[in-house]
Measured scan of single mutants.
Amino acid sequence: SEEKKKAKERLERLGASSELARELLDRANGNAEKAERLLRKLL
């Protein structure tokens, strides 16, 4: 979806690899905010 694509791009801008961004979104069930929080914990 367009929303998921935007979320993935945002995670990548924050420093996630394409693969990591995809994994985070999967774990967050597509929830962009939750995926971002997970990423911030990792960085």
Rank of each mutant, 00 (worst) to 15 (best):
S1Y: 13
S1N: 13
S1T: 13
E2I: 13
E2H: 11
E2Y: 07
E2K: 10
E2A: 12
E3A: 13
E3G: 11
E3I: 10
K4N: 14
K4D: 14
K4R: 15
K4W: 15
K5T: 12
K5R: 14
K5E: 13
K6V: 10
K6M: 11
K6D: 10
K6A: 12
A7H: 08
A7M: 09
A7W: 07
A7E: 05
K8A: 13
K8S: 11
K8F: 15
K8W: 15
K8G: 08
K8M: 15
K8V: 15
E9W: 00
E9A: 12
E9I: 09
E9C: 09
E9N: 08
E9Y: 00
R10H: 10
R10Y: 10
R10T: 07
L11M: 05
L11N: 00
L11G: 00
E12V: 13
E12M: 15
E12N: 04
R13P: 01
R13L: 12
R13G: 09
R13W: 11
R13I: 08
L14M: 13
L14H: 04
L14T: 01
G15F: 04
G15A: 03
G15N: 01
G15M: 04
A16C: 14
A16T: 03
A16R: 02
A16V: 07
A16Y: 00
S17G: 06
S17K: 03
S17T: 11
S17Y: 04
S18V: 09
S18Y: 02
E19R: 10
E19Q: 09
L20E: 05
L20N: 02
L20G: 02
L20K: 03
A21G: 01
A21N: 00
R22A: 15
R22I: 14
R22L: 15
E23V: 12
E23A: 10
E23P: 00
L24W: 02
L24Y: 03
L25A: 05
L25V: 08
L25Q: 02
D26F: 06
D26Y: 06
D26N: 09
R27Q: 13
R27S: 08
R27L: 14
N29Q: 11
N29M: 10
N29H: 12
N29A: 09
G30H: 05
G30F: 04
G30D: 06
G30Q: 07
N31Y: 04
N31Q: 05
N31V: 06
N31R: 03
N31S: 08
N31L: 05
A32N: 04
A32L: 15
A32K: 04
A32D: 05
E33Q: 12
E33G: 08
E33N: 09
E33M: 09
E33I: 10
E33V: 10
K34A: 15
K34P: 01
K34F: 14
K34N: 11
K34G: 09
K34E: 15
A35M: 04
A35C: 02
E36R: 03
E36K: 04
E36D: 04
E36F: 02
E36H: 03
R37H: 14
L38N: 07
L38D: 10
L38F: 03
L38C: 09
L38A: 12
L39D: 02
L39K: 00
L39M: 03
L39N: 00
L39H: 00
R40P: 03
R40H: 13
R40Y: 06
R40M: 08
R40N: 11
R40K: 14
K41N: 14
K41A: 13
K41E: 15
L42G: 04
L42W: 08
L42I: 14
L42F: 08
L42Q: 05
L42H: 05
L43G: 05
L43R: 07
